[in-house]
């Protein structure tokens, strides 16, 4: 069911995008989200579209795979388009059918908004497709570093995130094990009316919760035994490396941005 869905998934490969520093990728995404709103005519949208597809190409993840994975979101995009098509009554009337009227402005607005939506989703997917969650965490920790000055718990949040990431597969395995154990006792997870199926989840969740609390407690003791005492005075093992590639990517982005500002109307 979730097999093809790609939002938040990482696809290992050796591509230019994979090799970029997570910090530069995060900065680029952030800026991209801003400049998407700069585009306001076919040419500028064309440039953004081109830029995004070049990026997708550089990621070495097959475009068909990306678009296939975005299918559930594509419906949302189509829906946005239709909504704008009917609700914007601007410019020349193109055609009418019963009380449906389609105006030129509607087509334009619908295309632009849904395109914007599409570009944003595609770019953020490219980030997660080419960056491991732990790299994203590291990148965020550094980029949000200055917030420590106002006592924002950057290190703690990053640690929480990395521990969650580390435990997700473990908890999945455990869920699977409990599920099998309960199935062996006659609990049926996959058939019957919705109500009984929801009830069947309870004997799954309760042991999972109990064991998670136990894990959390034991982990906290183990961390303390290994000298953990908060972020202060701590060094980092995983290293981020800003290379020439990152600088080039940034410069390319600046060029795109400048072009957008020149060509927008």
């Amino acid at each position: 069911m979730m097999g093809k869905f790609i939002i938040g998934r990482y696809v290992p490969a050796d591509s230019l995008l994979h090799r970029m520093d997570p910090r530069s990728k995060l900065i680029l995404i952030f800026l991209f989200v801003c400049i998407v709103f700069v585009a306001n005519n076919p040419v500028t949208y064309g440039i953004l579209l081109l830029y995004t597809f070049v990026m997708a190409f550089l990621s070495k993840v097959p475009l068909r795979f990306i678009l296939g994975g975005l299918k559930p979101v594509l419906w949302l995009i189509v829906f946005t388009f239709i909504l704008h098509l009917f609700l914007t009554k601007d410019g020349a009337l193109l055609f009418e059918w019963g009380w449906f009227e389609v105006y030129e402005g509607g087509v334009r607005q619908g295309t632009f908004i849904s395109l914007r939506f599409f570009l944003l989703i595609l770019m953020t997917s490219l980030l997660t497709l080419t960056t491991t969650p732990i790299e994203i965490t590291d990148g965020l920790e550094v980029l949000l570093g200055p917030l420590k000055k106002i006592n924002f718990p950057v290190h703690e949040l990053a640690l929480m995130m990395s521990i969650s990431l580390r435990f997700i597969p473990t908890l999945m395995q455990e869920t699977d094990k409990i599920m099998k154990a309960q199935t062996a006792r006659g609990v049926d997870f996959s058939s019957g009316p919705l109500k009984t199926r929801i009830q069947a989840i309870i004997p799954l969740l309760v042991p999972l919760f109990i064991s998670s609390f136990k894990r959390a407690e034991e982990l906290a003791v183990a961390m303390e035994a290994r000298g953990y005492r908060g972020g202060e005075g701590r060094t980092k093992y995983r290293q981020l490396k800003w290379t020439g590639l990152d600088t080039v990517m940034m410069l390319a982005f600046v060029v795109v941005t400048v072009t957008l500002f020149i060509l927008r109307t």
Binding site: G233, K236, Q239
Partner: peptide
Amino acid sequence: FQSPDNQFVGTTVQDDVAFGLENNGVPR
């Protein structure tokens, strides 16, 4: 400790071994 899983902090083997060193501020 007893439980192999509940004392593994890092996302990979090398990250986990490094955890205690990071805590003690050992240079990279």
